[in-house]
Amino acid sequence: MTRIASPKDFWAGILYAGFGLAALWLGRHYPIGSTGRMGPGYFPLALGALMMLLGLASLVRSFLVAGSPVGIVAWKALALIIGANCLFAWLLPRAGAVIALTALILASGAASRQFHLGWRNLAIALGLTLACVLVFIKGLGVPMPILGSAFGF
């Protein structure tokens, strides 16, 4: 097998081709119509095909033209940041804004190497949470429950 000269192009190509294929597959039942009277499938399927071609082009190029490696992936930060975001979304209706926000701040903060769970960070997290509750829920009226359904509301 030929060596991959440009890993970035290779993975980008996989990604593009994947999106293109997904667009074609998910859209396979959309009526295409004709150029004069386009159906809902015309535009997305054309784009899906183009996306796939661009992905293939990137794949081909990855074998021909040398490029830089992907580099280190911050798996821990990735998991913690995305995880904290989803944790917030999950907790908000159930436990309410106070708990969800505090959890978001602490869980995402743990992605940093400078983070340690001490009274100081806890105080900062609670302070920020309180400020957000005051400004957004009380002040601007964003309809978030302060305490969620788990508390019987």
């Binding site: 975001n85 979304a89 926000l101 701040i105 920020l128 957000c132 957004f136």
Partner: peptide, 9 residues
């Protein structure tokens, strides 16, 4: 974390 808080809200 503060940026993240503002984004989610």
């Amino acid at each position: 974390p503060a940026i993240l808080v503002f984004c989610t809200i």
